[in-house]
């Protein structure tokens, strides 16, 4: 019984790993090998030609820069907005708190992803179509981040808060010296989830960008892949795909524990 189950899990684990292994191997295969057949997990004469060609054909450097700007542009503003809002919800009593809290909750249900069409119109009214700013703005408020951080701030002992005030700290100094340091694990969890989420984002940047200057990696990759769908060009598309996923995959393998606990953290209500 036990052996059978572990057997099944090992087989599933191998199957699960195959797509990544295969795309990496294909990215080092010469163009004709894919078509000629042969064992798909072995390259007799590996080549980096696919990477060189992919790199030359599409402006991947620019796409990398764009993705970096977008991902960190989203994160930095989010950190600012969620910190202030979480502090208000966790430690201030004010009129309309419950109503406002429910309004924030709404964003968890109606996420920007499903508002592709009306948000396009908002951006277009602002005259920001085809800018990196347009890719970032819908995500600058994060109800998810606010809730996550509010939970953490609530656990900060009042005594600490009080002590800092007696020492003459202004509210922002208390926030900075007491609350923010004690919420470090939450900030890391939120940052990892936010960065990997926006690195992967596709539909919104697809419709809102239309130039090399503003397009992120995901959209660049999709356009690149579409122009080379025939088998002979697989190597190039595989190389492009590997280039897009590598920063995430490498970061994941290095900081694996942190990633897993962050994603786990993100699911706690």
């Amino acid at each position: 019984m036990k052996k059978l189950n572990y057997g099944i899990i090992i087989v599933l684990g191998i199957i699960s790993f195959i797509p990544l292994l295969w795309v990496i191997i294909t990215s080092f295969s010469p163009g004709n090998q894919v078509i000629n057949g042969g064992f798909p997990f072995w390259v007799s004469n590996p080549t980096v030609e696919n990477y060189v060609k992919a790199w030359e054909t599409a402006p991947f450097i620019q796409y990398y820069i764009n993705t970096f700007v977008i991902v960190f542009g989203v994160l930095i503003v989010q950190l600012f907005t969620i910190t202030l809002a979480a502090f208000a919800f966790a430690r201030v009593n004010f009129k309309g708190k419950n109503v406002l809290f429910i309004l924030f909750l709404l964003q968890l249900m109606i996420q920007p992803e499903i508002l592709l069409f009306p948000n396009y119109q908002v951006i277009s009214q602002l005259g920001l179509v085809n800018t990196k700013l347009a890719v970032m703005m819908p995500y600058w408020a994060s109800a998810f981040g606010v809730f996550l951080l509010r939970q953490t701030f609530k656990q900060v002992p009042y005594d600490l808060d009080e002590a800092s005030r007696i020492d003459g700290c202004k509210w922002y100094q208390t926030l900075w010296h007491v609350y923010i340091p004690s919420a470090k694990p939450t900030y890391i969890a939120f940052a990892l989830v936010s960065v990997s989420h926006h690195w992967s984002n596709f539909m919104w940047p697809l419709i809102i960008t239309d130039s090399v200057e503003s397009r992120p990696l995901t959209v660049g990759l999709a356009l690149f892949a579409q122009s080379y769908e025939t088998g002979a060009q697989w190597g190039m598309v595989a190389a492009g795909t590997v280039m897009v996923i590598m920063p995430l995959v490498v970061a994941f393998f290095i900081f694996q524990k942190q990633f897993v606990s962050s994603f786990m953290h993100s699911g706690i209500k």
């Binding site: 990997s196 596709f202 996923i245 995959v249």
Partner: peptide, 11 residues
């Protein structure tokens, strides 16, 4: 989980 869906689609 951490691979973008668009890259998954390519693979």
């Amino acid at each position: 989980t951490i691979i973008p869906l668009i890259a998954v689609a390519n693979i």
